[in-house]
Nucleic acid binder design. Structure first.
Lengths: 338, 338
DNA sequence: GTGAAAGCGCTAACAA
DNA sequence: TTGTTAGCGCTTTCAC
């Protein structure tokens, strides 16, 4: 019953194969090319014994782990889920594990995770945060090796960054609205202090201005459905409401659309809609939602790539801007009044 | 420039605080209650030095890590994303990290992940797999301490399990269809060899039988949109098609609904629909989808709980069956012919 | 190409 | 209560 399992270690493999630990270790780490017969013996010993390296010992010895940390607000959001999937895949391909950390955009948890990672825990840190950032966080991030900022820039942090072309996203939305004849456009944004929010707004505004249209209503808030519901209420209570709305995220859009449905507002007949972020089955929505699509898989893949470069000593302060595109579906139509 | 950073260790803290390493170590692990002044000195030293424990050394020393492994098919699916979120949250609350592994339901990757975990890597393993299982996998899982099977049972594996009441889910769907007057019902299932698939079917069939209705069409396949599209094609080519369809997962449903839309089939007028799995914003779909809801957050939380119990030596072969419920929306209506 | 031995930073007997 | 010390299993100089 109390059968104490024998766990083979490197030295067991070495003894069985008739070589030293060093040889086995270096062979396993491809530090060394072994004569065919020696290699053979080692391989056999490993198989016979069922040897599996102990990752902790390995990590302790070399001072880093083959794991990367992924810090995101929440995995429950399709955008981040897709991002995590891409990161996981890219990491797996490089033989790296992914340590997942959800922060709920909570500053102290972010700080805590970064601190833990920073030590030795991971060989790289992929960080996404969508709120105002304290100097402490900025400081901690700047002290972190192998850091890559994803999706949202953080002013003052000097690291590799993989971001989207938010301005262009706003512009595409504005252009599309304008082409359909809209003149009064609303912007329902995320937190107003974020660069991404401002960029999306700026793109929208500039595209509108090109065609004598304008953004007549702006509202900012958290990336949450509740914010979308609030926005819907505000929008509907306006004396002269806009005819088109650009929503800055999927979460917000869900709340907004929900409230619009409940209020019996016809989309796109009475209100046209474009959402930034094409995660989730938006094509099955009522109506199918026109969206700004971000290449999420590429975001994750590039991030892992840059992380590897950054942790390999390359102090590249690279900033990558990924392009976005407009996916036309059925939530935009000419305004009723035209 | 080449500033070599001094990294404080436990012994630095000990020296600074004027105590021994043991004292600090045990204090930090709450193994020990220190006199207020001593505790004070230690705390101060830690803060001054900016000491952060090295988790690798810790793990190596104690033979286990404060990390749990989560092995799922893919994080890109909302169901698993929500599950991962729940697990992450529960783990975080217990001070545990989550190591994420996506397998794409690939047997060899599953085996590989389990092997790595098994060694020492994690203190518990949460495992989800939705396909036929090889004896090797079953063997490996049975050799794993702190294992909890989630969502899908694997015959022959003796461990704690947290599953849903799939039969009841099928029954609720069947009952709902029957109440609306449906007599010919279709079942679009996942892989036919899975217990969950069979249970959902059995529930549906039995509920139908109670009311002189029957399941006139069955089709099985992967949990993928493509399977749903195939199913839609098959359904539409039937001479005397069913009037209601119970779909076994969200992924399948997405493909099915997409194909149905393209074919111009009115839902629910011509075909009523219920989907097992209420992840994602199904209430915004066209039409809002009636669904069997599974308590995903509870699934994750219970799994972590059981894992902790299992790894604390408690060889509990507990099996938890979580209840499901019917969420009525607008995708079920009486059949046209009635 | 190969081996001996000194750590990596912490935990946990075992003493004191 | 507190300190001493021997590992945990692997990596990595540095000789041979």
């Amino acid at each position: 019953m109390t059968q104490r399992r024998f766990i083979p270690g490197l030295k067991d493999v070495a003894r069985t194969a008739g070589v030293s630990m060093t040889t086995v270790s270096r062979y396993l780490n491809a530090d060394l090319v072994l004569p065919p017969d020696t290699a053979q013996r080692v391989d056999t010993a490993i198989r016979q014994l069922g040897y599996v390296p102990n990752p902790h010992a390995r990590s302790l010895g070399r001072g880093r782990s083959d794991t990367i940390g992924l810090v995101i607000p929440t995995i429950a959001n399709p955008f981040f889920a897709l991002l995590a999937a891409a990161v996981e895949e890219a990491a797996e391909a490089k033989g790296l594990g992914v340590l997942l950390n959800a922060t709920s955009n909570n500053a102290s948890r972010e700080l805590q995770h970064v601190a833990r990672m920073r030590r030795n825990q991971v060989s790289g840190l992929l960080f996404v945060s969508a709120h105002y950032h304290t100097p402490e966080l900025v400081q901690a991030l700047n002290d972190t090796r192998g850091l890559v900022l994803i999706d949202e820039d953080i002013p003052g942090v000097h690291s590799a960054k993989v971001l989207y072309d938010n301005y262009r996203g706003g512009w595409l939305a504005g252009e599309h609205f304008v082409e359909h004849g809209h003149r009064r456009i609303a912007f329902i944004g995320g937190p107003s202090e974020l660069a991404s929010t401002r960029d999306r707004f700026a793109g929208l505004r500039d595209a509108a201005a090109q065609a004598d249209a304008e953004v007549t209503f702006e509202m900012y808030g958290a990336y949450a459905a509740a914010h979308g519901e609030d926005a819907a209420r505000a929008l509907l209570s306006l004396g002269r409401p806009p005819t088109a709305v650009f929503v800055s995220s999927g979460e917000i859009m869900i709340g907004l659309l929900d409230a619009l449905h409940r209020a019996g507002v016809a989309v796109p007949e009475r209100l046209s809609l474009i959402v930034f972020d094409d995660a989730g089955p938006l094509h099955l929505f009522d109506p199918p939602l026109t969206a700004i699509r971000q290449p999420i898989a590429e975001l994750g893949a590039r991030a892992v790539e840059l992380m590897l470069a950054a942790s390999h000593g390359d102090p590249a302060e690279t900033e990558v801007r990924l392009p976005v595109e407009l996916v036309k579906r059925a939530s935009v139509a000419p305004p009723a009044s035209v």
